[in-house]
Design a protein around this nucleic acid. Sequence first.
DNA 1: CCCAAAACTAACATTTATGTACGTACTTAC
DNA 2: GTAAGTACGTACATAAATGTTAGTTTTGGG
Lengths: 131, 131
Amino acid sequence: MTKNNRPPLTQLVQRGELMSADCPSREILLHMTSRWGVLVLMVLAEGTQRFSTLRRKIGGISERMLSHTLQALEGDGILQRVSYPEVPPRVEYTLTPLGQEAAEKVSALADWIEVSVPRFLQARADRVRKP
Amino acid sequence: MTKNNRPPLTQLVQRGELMSADCPSREILLHMTSRWGVLVLMVLAEGTQRFSTLRRKIGGISERMLSHTLQALEGDGILQRVSYPEVPPRVEYTLTPLGQEAAEKVSALADWIEVSVPRFLQARADRVRKP
DNA sequence: CCCAAAACTAACATTTATGTACGTACTTAC
DNA sequence: GTAAGTACGTACATAAATGTTAGTTTTGGG
């Protein structure tokens, strides 16, 4: 089954080969395109936000998932976390330059989807008519 | 918990509101940005492909997942499936116009990630140095 | 005759993602 | 004095994604 007829890893890290199963780009893609990752990037594209603000702006996200998603993105160097030693606690999240570029691409996709929703719904309706 | 302080659904379907938990755009986004959905779109952007070709080009995908992913995208009107009654069977998958636009956006993101892999790795290395 | 090829589907097992509930520590507002 | 806000971590439970294996059907090749 696993015939491993792929280029060597040293070659992969140079540019990133998404089609290869074990390229690190796969994981980054996963984080950015995760269920909540996309939405977090979109909101952070507006500017620095704190935890509770993100939670409120992103409908349906739980605190646990927001926390996990933020940690994954921070781990990829996409955003930066800054906590202030106050009471009640305050923590702010900001996109890094790398993250800003990421957010641009993701937002472009998301915006296109939002605008195209009617076309998607229409396509679905057509398929119900004549399947 | 669920306070439901969101705009009415009738308003959502007009343009798509990704930040609202129950907007249909959420599901479309999920399909397009799914683990394999992105890669399928990228390969189909090259042109019509048959099942086995997709399977070979996308490293690590199983037949089951390819099948499921293709069905989801077909259900959204992103691609079209055409099967020829031959033996052995032949089935071809082609992007619809809607799917071609989708593939453009997704590919733009994917390409950016591939090119940016070195920067991601660098960022990770930096964080190990000074966490 | 036996096996490979194609494009799957079904059944089952496992892993991952996500949700829920609870706790924390201190402050301000009511 | 009592509740709420803040940014989580932890434990547990469930849902969803993904993988593995086996089977199908018919033709052509060795």
